[in-house]
Structures are given as C-alpha cells and as structure tokens.
Nucleic acid binder design. Structure first.
Lengths: 118, 118
DNA sequence: CAACTTCATCGTTTATCTACGATATAAGTG
DNA sequence: CACTTATATCGTAGATAAACGATGAAGTTG
C-alpha cells in the first residue's frame, strides 16, 4: 500500500516570506491602469478565482491536487495556473515530481490597493 | 456662437443616491466566484479601467466626452461602456440628445468587498 | 533501465474580444 | 422638414481565450 504524500506544504517549503514592506508605486495613472487591467483580467474567470481562493485559504503551498478541486481537465487547469502565474498572482515551485503553488502576497496586496483606490 | 453645454452633471441628474445599505450577499462560494470573475473581467481592459476612474473622479454624471479622453474610436468606446454597463459597474441615463454616465456605487462597493475578502 | 507520476506544452477547435468604419436611431435646431 | 449632434448597433477582420486530448519532460520507484 502506498501512502499519499500530504499535498499541503508548510510555508517554509516555497511560500514567500510575509514581506510587509509597503508598495510605493502609484495607484492611479496610466501605468496603474494597465496594471489593474492585467490583474483584473487574470481574475476574470471563475476557475481562476477559485484557484486563487484555494491558495489563499491554505496559506501554504499546495501541490497539484488543485486539479481535483476543479471540474476541468488537467491541461486546462495548468493553463489557468499559468495565467495566474504570468500575472504574478501566484508562484509555483518545483518540488520533486510535483509543483507546489502558493499565492504571491505582494501582488495580492497590490491588487487590493488598486481596487481599494477606486 | 454656440456655448458648449457643461459635460458634467450634478448628482441629481442621474446618479443613484448614495445608498449605503450593506450588501448581505456572501463574499465567497461558487456564486461569489462567478460574480467576482464577471466584475474582474469587465475591468480587464485598460480603457475600461480608465473610464471607470473618470466616472469615479467626477462623482457625477458625465456626458459623452468620455470619447475625447480615450484614443479610441467612438464605436469602440461605446462598446467598452456597454461592457461596464452590463457588468453593472456603471449606469447610463438618456439626457436629451446625449447620455450621462455615472458609476454604480453599489456594484463598486461590492467589487471592493469581493477583492478585499481575498 | 523500465514503469509510473506529475505537470507543462502542443495542436486544434470553437468562442469571445477588440477595434474600426459604416449605418441606424433619436433628440435637438434652423 | 432638413440638418446637425450624440450614441448605439451592425458587420467584419484579426487577435486572444478556453477547452480538450495527446504528447513530452522530469523526477521517483521498483
């Protein structure tokens, strides 16, 4: 019999340290508009919102069973993860045969600041 | 000679009253995911972010010179306005030959709540 | 090394988005 | 009523997005 590896890792495994330093970038202006649009676009799909929530809730690295949580094919989930990663909202770290995902708190904070600033 | 009409209207013209009642809908769950994704998608384009900001800043109805503020054709701006309107983020009210736009504070608050709840 | 696991990437199909010019609509103006 | 103005809608072309199965790459296990 084979025991499944735990699919949630402690913060130390790959999650970025809780970097609390303030973001000095402006929350409005042309650049901020682009930035907000990019982040919003990345969140513009229910599956990606769900993924982000999963990772926020765990507040730790989560290895690939994200696929099991969504009613989508593995390749589709992988694509959604890529979108979130490209937007900088999550981070993926290779851990042996799997990949551990966690949120990028900096970017999430930035998103909240941009939306809050509306 | 013809004087241009002022293109910003007072709140009373069409802006919804500052309805401060709390939104009781949950900020997570499948429905909230869909809702957030829809709102985020609507914001997922720089032009639409810019439009929203214009309306927020004015905090009043703004008649169509939104077109003049953007480097886009009138028909394109009209489409973006429609996206924002469909998402419930803005409202457009016919005012004689023009249309006055203003933000829908309820939806904007809702968006902030959803994002803040991440 | 062969088999298996985990995940990313490729190739494809279908759908949606973005932008524009052209045209329609609707309300004021002479 | 003809004419102008302000917007919306239509039609269309090109770009992106979303989904899937199939395949590839990298690590683990026997």
């Amino acid at each position: 019999m084979k025991l499944a590896k735990p699919s949630v890792r402690t913060k130390s495994a790959c999650c970025p340290p809780a970097n609390e330093e303030a973001d000095l970038r402006p929350i409005e202006g042309e650049l901020a508009d682009e930035e907000l649009a990019t982040l919003a676009k990345a969140l513009g799909h229910p599956a990606r919102v769900q993924i982000l929530r999963l990772l926020v809730r765990k507040d730790a690295c989560m290895c690939g069973d994200i696929v099991d949580e969504l009613p989508l094919a593995q390749s589709t989930v992988s694509q959604h993860l890529k979108v979130l990663k490209t937007a900088g909202l999550i981070r993926g770290e290779i851990d042996g045969p799997r990949v551990c995902y966690c949120i990028e708190p900096r970017t999430l904070r930035r998103l909240k600041a941009l939306i809050g600033g509306l």
